[in-house]
Design a protein around this nucleic acid. Sequence first.
DNA 1: GCCCAGGCACTCA
DNA 2: TGAGTGCCTGGG
Length: 281
Amino acid sequence: MKYKKVGNSIEMIEYDSFDIGQILECGQCFRFSGSDNNYSIIAHGKLLNISQTNDKIIFYPCTINEFENIWINYFDLNTDYLQIKKILSHSDNILAKAIKLCGGIRILNQDKWECLISFIISQNNRIPQIKKVIENISNMFGSKINDQYYTFPTRSQLLNATQENLQNCKAGFRSKYILDAIKSEINLENLSNLSTQDIKNTLMKIKGVGNKVADCSLLFSFGRREVYPTDVWIKRVTQEIYFNNKDVSINQIHNFAKNKFGNLAGYSQQYLFHYARNIKR
DNA sequence: GCCCAGGCACTCA
DNA sequence: TGAGTGCCTGGG
């Protein structure tokens, strides 16, 4: 990967495995807008525009410092996706097919708190609605970035939030779960050194955090690429491809993914998720 | 009006 | 330990 400063933007050239549309639309994050290779995201307290053409990707406004300290890690640019895709493609044909279709996916490294709350909101919900609820909460409790956008609020910014506030943000029955997360004394940053299973157990003490939400949190904000978040789509496609369409438990799927994909289970999950949503149905 | 969506908690056997 | 059921909300 190579990049250079051009005016108030950073231009990335000589990169691989990067398709901004695939990265944002594959369901791992919710604070973005745009289409056709032109997107805006809000992450880590900043608004960033990304414009992708055939030979380069432009990030703006963005300084070298911001790019190196925030966005390289956020977009997982130090991970060798060519190698990952090569290994997974060799492991089976359908995964190879999925990777061909969405080889530009990268797993983001998101803010832990925002990610956890976002996936609590995601349960039994649709993506447009999830995005709306998160935006409502940001507008009500976050810090102003400009006339249009607010950051996602930190836990301390949410300390005074009430059930009624969150209902007004359309969080519905998940309001009480968000309140429980706010009240819990769990410091997410302090969990970073624990084992994946220990983090998971800790997260699941929060009401509204089960297997799936905890796994998404681990994969998308704790960098634990060995987890295989299993929602209805992943359950469906995994059963279809690897279990001869037989109905199996989440635990069986987790064990299967661990054995077959090992430390790359999270990447497989993303490729298969995209495959399931866009090809099947 | 009915159904359901990227789960989870709660109840009851 | 596992199956069954209800849940805010809004779009089809």
